[in-house]
């Protein structure tokens, strides 16, 4: 595969550019929208808050939204990169494998029937749902003739997704009050979330980000094939379980914050790999930055499509991601 960025120095510079872009787009996210506020006002709101309407919008709505978008985009993209590396499946991602849907179903279930409402409880419920789905899909993809093939894994994931989507909708049909509360959330949205939601989940997400960076070296070894990895002395099972836990933290945490936002996890790792190649020590940070950029851009776009209304950002990412998904599916599942 031809790679765009070759030398280590260029890759490091790329990271710096990426960080700058994330900051730039986060700024755009704070400035553009139904209420235009201008860059200076936005800066003033952060440094010299005066209680005006514009300042309140920037501080209470736009800034949390930008930060949440960036964090969720990062997390989902990293989770996708890990899953794709781990399963050597180009379509692997938390949404195609039904992990997001599992976490979403767990949350709707707990909100509708066990009156769970605090964000901490939601987070743990989401982790539980994501973990169960991951284990089920992995087990299902592995049994039967031929072992763990990308095809079986994808189909098992898709059927779990259909199952959870149907169960979630059934749950909502039973409980109309819950429907109003979770409808927008279920479509995947970063709008209207308080900053506290992010700060209370940040420890889990940050642990996931760090864990992903830690596992990136062993993942490279694992990508050479399990036999090679084993003969190099790698404890494969531990690496896999560790990566699985990281995926659950990132996917579950993102779903608890923003609902199931799709396709970021499928698309971004491909872009990252085409930039820096197969070395996951670079793929993971690049995925993180690109994921944040994609979600920020999608969120800004979501405000302009049907002014003055907003489209949930999950809808935007699905529409952007589908052509890409079709392209990968046409190319075949046998190469990453």
């Amino acid at each position: 595969m031809s790679v765009l960025i070759k030398t280590t120095r260029q890759k490091a510079a790329g990271i710096a550019v990426g960080i700058l872009l994330v900051i730039l787009f986060a700024g755009c996210s704070a400035v553009y929208g139904y209420t235009e506020v201008g860059w200076k006002t936005a800066l003033d709101a952060l440094t010299a808050f005066d209680g005006s309407k514009e300042h309140i919008i920037v501080l209470k709505n736009r800034v949390p939204r930008a930060l949440i978008g960036a964090a969720v985009g990062m997390s989902l993209a990293i989770a996708g990169a890990l899953l794709q590396g781990l399963t050597r499946n180009p379509l692997a991602s938390p949404d195609i494998f039904g992990i997001n849907a599992g976490a979403g179903f767990a949350i709707v279930l707990s909100a509708a029937f066990f009156s769970v409402s605090s964000i901490h409880q939601f987070a743990w419920v989401a982790f539980l749902g994501a973990a169960c789905t991951t284990v089920i899909v992995y087990l299902l993809g592995g049994v039967g003739a031929g072992g763990l093939t990308p095809v079986k894994l994808t189909l098992a994931g898709a059927s779990m997704w259909l199952l959870f989507a149907s169960l979630t909708q059934g749950m909502l049909a039973l409980n109309e009050r819950a429907l109003e509360e979770v409808m927008f959330w279920l479509a995947g949205s970063v709008e209207g979330r308080k900053l506290e939601v992010l700060t209370s989940l940040l420890p889990y997400l940050a642990a996931g980000w760090l864990g992903a960076l830690m596992i990136s070296g062993p993942l490279n070894v694992l990508l050479m094939g399990e036999d090679v990895a084993a003969s190099l002395g790698q404890r494969i099972l531990i690496v896999k379980i560790f990566a699985g836990v990281v995926v659950v933290l990132l996917a579950g945490g993102s779903v608890a914050i923003a609902g199931p936002v799709g396709f970021v996890g499928v698309v971004i790792p491909h872009v990252a790999r085409s930039l820096v190649g197969m070395d996951h020590r670079w793929v993971i940070p690049y995925s993180a930055l690109l994921g944040a950029i994609l979600l920020l851009l999608a969120d800004i776009g979501a405000r302009y499509i049907i002014m003055p209304n907003e489209v949930p950002v999950g809808v935007m990412t699905a529409l952007i991601g589908t052509p890409f998904f079709v392209y990968i599916a046409r190319r075949g599942l046998n190469r990453l």
């Binding site: 379509l91 949404d95 195609i96 095809v151 994808t154 189909l155 898709a158 997704w161 989507a165 409808m183 927008f184 479509a187 799709g262 396709f263 049907i306 209304n309 489209v311 949930p312 999950g314 809808v315 699905a318 529409l319 991601g321 589908t322 998904f325 079709v326 599916a329 046409r330 075949g332 599942l333």
Partner: peptide, 24 residues
């Protein structure tokens, strides 16, 4: 296989469009 995979992808997209319709 390709048919099923592309079906899965487009189902996600169609669901997104349905959500837009419902919201508006």
């Amino acid at each position: 296989l390709r048919l099923v995979l592309i079906g899965i992808g487009l189902t996600h997209a169609v669901q997104a469009l349905t959500t837009i319709m419902i919201l508006f």
